[in-house]
Design a binder for these strands. Structure first.
Ligand SMILES: [Mn+2]
Ligand SMILES: [Mn+2]
Ligand SMILES: [Mn+2]
Ligand SMILES: [Mn+2]
Lengths: 232, 232
DNA sequence: TAATAAAGTTAGACTAATCTAACAAATAAA
DNA sequence: TTTATTTGTTAGATTAGTCTAACTTTATTA
């Protein structure tokens, strides 16, 4: 079944909402907001997607992706993240620039293209933001759970991904001298507002709670190779 | 000015018609045929493109690209040919597969992307079919003029480009053992129907007039580095 | 030159994706 | 348990791109 650019974006939005919020209770308003359209518009599209059996949905009920809808959404995400990786690794885009272009590239229709790209990049498992890349069967590594704000004072951790993908945050991270795979030591934490002093490459920085909550990390135990069920 | 996928294709079609036919007297019917739409549809679009000052066009008159329309069309062709080169050189697509995917990729909007791709490919001057790639100012090498059918019996030449880009012809060329930059010696030519015996890499093949007319070549003089005004 | 053919235009209709405004249902608050 | 608020739906309109069928203009040919 050949889907339009727009239909693909609705499916992707549905998957992303459940990814991010954990909830899989998505309503018309939330979906519409995430696509920056009006609820009436989303409602129309939902009828169409239901007709094509890509979503499960009853009037006034909650929306869920069907099995096939989910597979397609995962495929779009696979393409998005592979293209981001290509732009970052091969064309030397910075990590705050890749998303916008990948939003376009993810809709290019050619299985051969994406499989060859995957191979060319040597089957990467994570994109430049640390997000897992689904394989061609739609399977993907479990995403990280622990953030920098969960790390106790005195402990070390490793930055593995970014939660907020906005380019302003991504640029800010670089400015602080931080990046994927960096070791971070939590030096101190202000009790009143959780302002945290971290040490990265021997440089101290002070970051807000909001900042710390948007940096995914692996804890000290995980770094040393021990399994930790809290981290992933 | 941000153009739609469709508008871009109309501009590209206009440029391609003038490229290929030499004529720059394009009418509604010819344009429509080249885009596989009905004349009525092309007529509607022409009004819109005129409004945007991308084409010069009066009712019942001939169609011409404006300066800005031509620049945009050249830009699409630049993107198309750079993507073809990428698919061919980096992702190991065969030369008969690249066009279809490039038809989609040529509409991705990002100047940075195309400039970085250009650099990544080391500023190629020709695509996998030997067609010249416009630079970022829309300037391009003059295209080849002489075809294999122009070469005299006993003379040698070098294949430099393909006139007919259909995948069936491209596949056929490979089957004959021919490719860009191959030396071709014209062994004999049947007077009645111009069936030509050629020698490529010590192998003899017999090709039709239609075939020979669709292979661009440089003549013997040009191969030896002498300038020849007939060839380019 | 007049008839015929070819090329080009217009009118009216359709689909996909969007909107606004009005309405209905479900949920939360009083 | 009413009332108010939030959430979701419907109706009607709009724009881009396409079509068919009818018509007009230009070009060709007899
Ligand atoms: Mn992204
Ligand atoms: Mn990403
Ligand atoms: Mn091509
Ligand atoms: Mn080409």
């Amino acid at each position: 079944m050949l889907l339009s650019y727009t239909e693909e974006n609705y499916l992707k939005a549905l998957l992303k909402i459940t990814f991010n919020s954990g909830i899989n209770e998505v309503g018309t308003n939330k979906l519409a907001a995430s696509l920056v359209v009006k609820p009436a518009t989303a409602n129309d599209m939902l009828k169409k997607l239901k007709e094509k059996e890509l979503v499960k949905y009853e009037k006034y009920g909650k929306i869920k992706l069907s099995k096939s809808g989910q597979k397609i959404a995962l495929d779009i995400i696979r393409k998005h993240r592979l293209w981001e990786t290509f732009l970052y690794q091969k064309l030397e885009f910075s990590w705050d620039e890749v998303h916008e272009v990948a939003e376009q590239l993810e809709h290019i229709k050619s299985e051969k293209l994406i499989d060859k790209l995957d191979k060319y990049l040597n089957f990467p498992e994570f994109d430049p933001h640390g997000d897992p890349i689904p394989n061609r069967n739609g399977e993907l590594k479990v995403h990280y759970k622990k953030t920098l704000s969960d790390i106790a004072v005195g402990s070390s951790c490793k930055m593995v991904a970014v939660k907020d993908n906005s380019s302003s945050f991504l640029q800010y991270i670089i400015k602080v001298g931080l990046g994927i795979n960096n070791q971070i030591k939590v030096i101190s934490k202000q009790e009143y507002d959780s302002i945290t002093i971290i040490e990265v490459n021997d440089i101290l920085s002070s970051v807000s709670l909001k900042f710390a909550e948007n940096i995914y990390v692996l804890c000290g135990d995980c770094i040393e190779g021990k399994k930790c069920f809290e981290c992933q």
